[in-house]
């Protein structure tokens, strides 16, 4: 029997997540290298329609476990289903997404299968020995390492979302197979009581993935509106911040102050508008993964830290940027 690479699809509220297609794409590439096949496993309740949606994206088989117990994600129910499928299919490699649920789920799966797990990988390949070669960043990305799982099977890895391309729809048909798995109530100790949408799009600065921040260059409280709009354009998980001098000038409330004496933040993207970048401010945001700075003063210290700096009037740049981001987001 050909070696199988099993990828776990991720869906939420009846929609497939993009990571599912990213996994399929890389799964297919890996399968080609080991001369095997790729299959995708869909877990949930009443997922027939979603299974069909997966058709044509390169998976040889679309496996579905359909159970009311899988209606909501819990690590116990999902792990149970996956492990049962693995016991039937004996895949060589098991791939999942390093998403909120993936990061939660796979440690249990790996431990139950007594195998290794390379988590949050940014690149996946096959080693000369035919093993899964998973590259993952460690020390917050300061170093990369290769992880291999030489003996235990399946080799499990989770892939960081948005780093690899997604599979495109092709002509090859996939075979849909339903696998019955019995999940008993006694298998489930932890129960999801409810999901809560935190108020509005804005979340706490320290937890935001995108922060748009304004400094004294904002010139007034009203002008912070354009930062709100830019933040909104990025969607959920965004927040608006301010430098100490903006707060001191009364443009913004103290609870959104970023810096040594305010909040220390670590978003994926930090957009500094009209912030010169005193050390007090830098101390609070310098570990941001990507920093964009807009400032009129080409000598502003913030430019030394910025990945991308624009020497221009922020009032011209920010509204244009908002429009462009909205356009791209609309396409996605």
């Amino acid at each position: 029997m050909a070696k199988e690479i099993l990828v776990i699809a991720e869906q939420k509220d009846g929609r497939l997540k993009k990571i599912s297609f990213e996994l399929l794409c890389i799964g297919k590439k890996l399968a080609d290298k080991i001369g095997g096949t790729v299959s995708i496993l869909l877990l949930g309740y009443q997922v027939d329609k979603l299974a069909e949606e997966l058709d044509g994206y390169g998976a040889q088989k679309i496996l579905a476990v359909d159970s009311e117990a899988l209606k909501n994600y819990t690590n116990e129910s999902y792990a149970k289903a996956i492990v049962e499928v693995v016991k039937i299919r004996h895949p060589e490699i098991l791939l999942g997404g390093a998403t909120a649920s993936g990061k939660d789920l796979f440690p249990r799966v790996a431990a139950r299968l007594q195998t290794g797990l390379a988590s949050d990988c940014t690149s996946l390949d096959i080693s000369p020995e035919g093993l899964l070669l998973a590259q993952r960043p460690i020390f917050a990305g300061k170093i990369l390492v290769d992880a291999i799982i030489p003996e235990a099977r399946p080799q499990i890895a989770t892939l960081r979302p948005n780093v690899l391309p997604a599979a495109e729809k092709g002509s090859q048909k996939s075979e849909i197979e339903k696998i019955p798995v019995e999940i008993k109530p006694m298998d489930l100790k932890a129960i999801l009581k409810e999901t809560v949408k935190t108020a509005g799009e804005r979340i706490d600065l320290t937890e935001a993935s995108v922060i748009v921040s304004g400094g004294r260059g904002m010139a007034s409280q009203e002008n912070f509106k354009i930062l709100e709009e830019l933040a909104s354009a990025f969607g959920e998980g965004t927040a608006v911040g301010a430098s100490r001098s903006a707060v001191d000038s009364g443009f913004a409330p103290h609870d959104i102050q970023v810096g040594q004496t305010g909040k220390v933040v670590n978003p994926n993207l930090y957009i500094a508008c009209g912030i010169s970048g005193s050390i007090q401010h830098l101390a609070g945001m310098r570990t941001s993964k990507y920093i964009v700075a807009v400032n009129k003063d080409p000598e502003a210290p913030i430019f030394q830290l910025a990945d991308c700096g624009i020497v221009a009037d922020l009032f011209k740049i920010v509204p244009l940027l908002t429009e462009e981001v909205k356009k791209i987001k609309a396409q996605q």
Partner: peptide
């Protein structure tokens, strides 16, 4: 304590 300076540097 960790870096002997006031900032997180």
């Amino acid at each position: 304590e960790t870096n002997s300076n006031p900032w997180t540097i």
